[in-house]
């Protein structure tokens, strides 16, 4: 199945990535070829097979809901691309 321009654009949007017009064909080809390859999985009968998310047996891990030390504000903001008055600063989200 060939991946259409529309589907590619939709997935790119979900991924918050812009694909330039001149890259579109290449992405379509790569993705189409890749999906053709993974089609081989359809040879495997899995009707009665449960999925594995983690390889080792895992259970929910709980801890006490205690107050514990954490990064102080200054350290947490150290790598912020833009900050102001102890906050991360982002472009305006809400309209006036």
């Amino acid at each position: 199945m060939k991946v259409s321009k529309e589907i590619l654009a939709n997935v790119a949007g979900l991924s918050r990535l812009a694909i330039a017009e001149e890259e579109t064909t290449r992405y379509q080809e790569d993705l189409t070829k890749f999906l053709a390859y993974v089609e081989t999985l359809n040879e495997v009968a899995t009707e009665n097979t449960p999925p594995t998310t983690y390889a080792l047996p895992m259970e929910n891990v709980f801890r006490e809901d205690d107050v514990r030390p954490s990064l102080d504000r200054e350290a947490a903001l150290l790598n912020a691309p833009l900050k102001e008055d102890g906050y991360f600063k982002v472009p305006k989200v809400l309209e006036d």
């Binding site: 999906l35 993974v38 999985l41 359809n42 495997v44 899995t46 097979t49 449960p50 999925p51 594995t52 998310t53 390889a55």
Partner: peptide, 13 residues
């Protein structure tokens, strides 16, 4: 795709 892959993962294991 994703769910199928996780089931095959079970078989590999």
């Amino acid at each position: 795709y994703y769910l199928k892959a996780m089931k095959v993962r079970t078989l590999v294991q």
